[in-house]
Amino acid sequence: MTAATISSPLALDARGTAAIAGHAVHWRLGTVPGASRADLSALARAWLEEIVNARDLFAWNGLTRASATAKPRPRNAPDADVSISHSSTMLLVGACADARIGVDIEAGPFRAFDSPALVRRMCTPHESTTAQSLDDDARRRYLARVWTSKEAQTKATGTGLVTDFRTLDSGARPHFPLQPFEAHLAVADRDAVLHAHTLVLEDSRD
């Protein structure tokens, strides 16, 4: 199935623009019931094309990869960037005309973060201490917040998992609106300084 044949309505469909370090990051988030990874990949490209064209961000010529493991980037638009993340049936995309960006989303219930091995590998000492102070549900959500911040940041730099997450500050705080996901947008500015932005939907704010 391709994006063109996805007929089920989106269970969640939100979009917006975040101003991060002086750069406008345009995003769209949705839940596509029954979608496969291939469906979500195709839909992500369609959403990005729509965002880029609707906002006239840059000339859309599709996406290209520098290598098999590199993230897809806009073809013939060297100042622009896009980012794609999906988790379960949730999809998040972002586009920016003038900065390197990353987006990342994790759908609940975040059980992957019950792994002590993962927690040891992904947390700074401060984040580990914070996680240990929380009850089970709050700890999972906090760790998902930590993870999506770091994933978004390293997608923005293009370094991905080569970065040692134990030395990267997520900036995450253990204060949670009720939403079925944790997600971040991130910008790497011209000085390679990273800026992470927690994505919170308006109707989830407490």
Binding site: A117, R121, L161
Partner: peptide
């Protein structure tokens, strides 16, 4: 490349290999 390992599980597996 066809397994599409999620990065969470890649990092988990790295630590478990080390252990």
């Amino acid at each position: 490349s066809e397994m599409e390992l999620d990065s969470i599980y890649v990092l988990t597996l790295c630590t478990e290999i080390e252990d």
